[in-house]
Write a protein that binds this DNA or RNA. Sequence first.
DNA 1: TTGAAAGCGGTACCAA
DNA 2: TTGGTACCGCTTTCAA
Lengths: 334, 334
Amino acid sequence: MSTIKDVANIAGVSIATVSRVVNNGPKVGNKTRDKVLKVMAEIGYTPNANARALVKQKNTTLGVVIPALNDPFFASLANGVERIARDKKQHMLLSTGGFSSESELNAINLLIEQRCESMVVHSKKLADDTLIELSKKVPGIIFIDRLVPSIEERCIWLENTEGGKIAARHLLALGHTQFALLNSNFDIEDPSLRRKGFVETIENLNSKQANIQEINHEPTLKGGEMAAQQLLSLNIPFSAVFAYNDAMAIGAISVLEDNGLRIPEDVSVIGFDDVLLSQYSRPKLTTMHYPIEIMAENAAKLAIEFSHNQQSKSDFKHRYIPNLVKRESTSSCG
Amino acid sequence: MSTIKDVANIAGVSIATVSRVVNNGPKVGNKTRDKVLKVMAEIGYTPNANARALVKQKNTTLGVVIPALNDPFFASLANGVERIARDKKQHMLLSTGGFSSESELNAINLLIEQRCESMVVHSKKLADDTLIELSKKVPGIIFIDRLVPSIEERCIWLENTEGGKIAARHLLALGHTQFALLNSNFDIEDPSLRRKGFVETIENLNSKQANIQEINHEPTLKGGEMAAQQLLSLNIPFSAVFAYNDAMAIGAISVLEDNGLRIPEDVSVIGFDDVLLSQYSRPKLTTMHYPIEIMAENAAKLAIEFSHNQQSKSDFKHRYIPNLVKRESTSSCG
DNA sequence: TTGAAAGCGGTACCAA
DNA sequence: TTGGTACCGCTTTCAA
């Protein structure tokens, strides 16, 4: 691949001049500019971003860490970041962190080696202290989907507890009293926060007759199916299901329907996340909308801002509340 | 961020020595190694990948170009590439190419600037000649989901025509004779290839009574709905639908069901791609499985191999045939 | 308006 | 086993 030197030689100018025309620098004669441009096109010169980053001590790379790409939720996250990257003429370097603390740290270190000036990181496994350390080392790092005390300005998070509350209120308003909570068995705090909001609300508003059966499984379609099967085998009455996410909700629905229960006539089901899937399912899924794409966009903007200024000037929204999207899978009880 | 020089100064050794321990180089005294390691940890030294790439004239970056991230098909593609990248200790740089030739070219140039040694590119809009040029300039570039004559060894593609044939055979075997083809209206060759295989097979095997009605729309859920509506308004008989992709198939199913048609009793529907969605839908979708993730993995391996050797030694599979996944949305006619 | 040259953070060769 | 140093491709000051 040709270098700036090649261009300079062929065009009969100095590399400084070539550099100027490449960067639209000032004070270059029109004749010279044209000549250089012509040579560049002829030999297919492309500037080396590595060399550039080295001397300029800065990068146009925005790094992202997500657990995996093939999950629609994280795909939306990445998509939001990517949109901002494109807007701000940055490149996006994506690194997957899997579901363990070592691989999360690996993924982050990779981005640091590349000297990404800004980073949007989804980490559930790393300890608060580690993230605080990282925030000191990398001015432009933002943690999404997580609240780390003492560095809240570097975090963008969802109030999971509120999500549980809103779901509970919706189901209570529909007259339900017998609940099933199909929760994730992943060892992160989200499931317990959602449970907390859900359970507390129900107990507060309807302490007498209410009953909540919780079953934990993988937060996947399969996990939802298995949770529903287990629920049925318990042989206890229920008319409303709150699932940890849309995949579990849809898995549960398919098992419930296979067992002769109609959704929503016999059982109301409410999901979480509002991934594309929930609009495709039949019945269309009532769910808690998780504004992950908007959160990701803001995280990206915030990351870029921090990397430039060390201090955010704009008043960004850091704390998000999910909202209910009423579709077809919930209805009044009885 | 601290540099190799800082480490050398503090540890009281030369930068050459530090470089050796960083790279696990040979012949470093144990004492020296420990001392350097200690300093590195203390000041949180992380090597600069840009500087490294510059001097070594090579990168550990694998570039990917896809139109967008929020489409499950492309997410699978990216996921396959990412898996290989991780295996081969490469980083993945992702650049979205949108749906126009300029933005596709932009995305590719971005990766070239970063000097990605290997690249997996999904391009539908760029002309063959452009891709041939690119393949000369970048030894490690592989085109996925596309067949460019004269550089077939740099391509990994699916035989869309075969997909159409297999779908047709399946429906014919079930006794169907009245077909609807809900095709994509995108200006790429895939829709016409699938149509070709579908139509030819039906005409060959059942020229007398067969009838095929084609309707074109966006290859999305919405497009499928609209296509189905249009189909119904035509008021012609049909018992089998071949959709361009799963999203269209599922959109069509919802409209057909809303109009009192049962799937598959009244109408058989077959999709294409076999994205996750098709297993979540009810009834579960019969579809043509597009092995995109495996293709992507192979494209990534091939790209890395080409970037190293200029010539692929392994005998890679370049040409893929989709296969039928029989689920619940098709059944025998009448 | 142009060119010379220092230097960004590393690697790797050659000497010591 | 260690250190000195040229150099990777580019930007940017300083002079001309």
